[in-house]
Simulated scan of single mutants.
Amino acid sequence: MLASFFKKSKPINFLIVSVFMTVYFAVANFYKLEQAFSWQFMAKKAGYLLLYILIMFILNFIVKRNEISKKNSFAILLFALFTSLLLPILKASEILIAGFFVLLALRKIISLSSGLEIKKKIFDASLWIAVASLFYPLSIFFLILPFVGIFYYATQDFKNFLIPFVAVICTYLLVTTGYLLVFNVIFPLSHFLIIPDLSIGIYKEAYVLIPLIISTLFTLISLFFFLREMQNTIRKRRAMLFLILLFFIIGLLIVVLSPHKTGAELLFPILAISMMGVIFLEQKGLKLIKEIVLATLILAVLIIPFMLW
Rank of each mutant, 00 (worst) to 15 (best):
M1N: 08
S4W: 04
K7S: 15
I16M: 11
T22F: 00
T22P: 04
Y24I: 00
Y24A: 04
F25S: 00
F25V: 02
F30E: 11
K32I: 04
L33T: 08
L33V: 09
E34T: 15
K44W: 06
A46S: 14
A46Q: 06
A46F: 11
G47V: 09
L49T: 01
I53E: 09
L54S: 12
I55Y: 02
F57G: 05
L59I: 12
L59K: 06
K64R: 14
K64T: 07
N66P: 00
N66W: 06
E67L: 10
E67S: 13
I68N: 01
K71D: 15
A75L: 06
I76R: 03
L78F: 03
F79K: 02
A80S: 11
I89K: 09
L90Q: 14
E94G: 01
I97L: 12
A98E: 05
G99A: 08
I109C: 02
I110E: 03
S111E: 15
G115W: 01
G115L: 11
I118R: 06
S126D: 07
A130Y: 07
A132V: 00
S133Y: 00
F135N: 04
F142G: 04
F142N: 06
L145P: 07
F151L: 14
Y152L: 03
Y152M: 05
L173P: 01
L173D: 05
Y179A: 09
L180F: 10
V182N: 03
N184D: 07
S190T: 15
S190H: 05
H191P: 02
I194E: 08
I195V: 14
P196M: 13
P196F: 12
P196L: 12
D197K: 11
L198Y: 13
G201S: 10
I202D: 02
Y203D: 05
K204N: 07
A206R: 13
A206W: 06
I213S: 04
I214V: 15
F218Y: 14
T219S: 14
S222F: 07
F224S: 07
F224K: 15
F224N: 11
F226V: 03
R228C: 02
Q231W: 14
N232G: 07
N232Q: 14
T233N: 06
T233L: 04
R237I: 08
R238D: 05
M240R: 10
F242S: 12
L245T: 01
L245M: 12
I250C: 10
I250T: 08
I254L: 13
V255F: 13
V256Y: 13
V256D: 07
S258L: 08
H260I: 05
K261L: 01
A264L: 09
L267P: 02
P269N: 07
I273E: 12
M275T: 03
M276L: 10
G277I: 09
G277F: 06
V278W: 05
L281P: 03
E282Q: 05
E282P: 00
Q283K: 15
L288S: 12
L288K: 14
E291P: 11
I292H: 00
L294V: 06
A295N: 09
L299K: 00
A300M: 00
V301T: 15
I303T: 15
I303M: 11
I304F: 05
L308M: 06
W309G: 15
